[in-house]
């Protein structure tokens, strides 16, 4: 349940920004989460809601945007979306680090993010 420690960091950091800008009430927080992380959006929202009570973030909304994975291949020069594993047990195809063109290992250049994008607040 690493979502709880991430939610705690998120709320602490938003409170710091809010304080710096003289915000009395935070309305909405927009978060970008990379496709390659195993941070579960629903669980993070649940943790967020349990942490924000009685803070300037109370009743604020957490919006989560998924940042798609992008990979690059040092063997054939491919750059773009990863190859997906359709045969996996998940409901959705799983991103792999197998190059879609040459089959060798690729490196991720995008998809590991977990970052605050926007904080919307009332002064």
């Amino acid at each position: 349940m690493h979502e709880f420690s991430i939610a705690t960091t998120l709320v602490e950091d938003v409170l710091k920004f809010a304080q710096k800008h003289g915000a009395t009430k935070v309305v909405r927080v927009r978060l970008g989460i990379g496709e390659l992380t195993c941070i579960q959006a629903e669980q993070l929202k649940f943790c967020y809601e349990s942490v924000i009570t009685e803070t300037a973030l109370a009743n604020s909304e957490l919006e989560i945007e998924t940042i798609p994975a992008r990979v690059t291949c040092s063997y054939c020069g491919y750059q773009g979306a990863p190859k997906y594993w359709m045969d996996s047990l998940a409901d959705v195809p799983i991103a792999t680090f197998q190059c879609p063109t040459c089959g060798k290992s690729v490196e991720a250049v995008q998809g590991h993010e977990c970052a605050i994008k926007t904080i919307q607040y009332a002064a």
């Binding site: 950091d13 920004f17 800008h21 915000a23 977990c114 970052a115 994008k117 919307q120 607040y121 002064a123």
Partner: peptide
């Protein structure tokens, strides 16, 4: 409505 946006790229990790 005096709602403000702070645009960031603040990584939690």
């Amino acid at each position: 409505e005096e709602i403000y946006d702070i645009e960031l790229e603040h990584s939690l990790l």
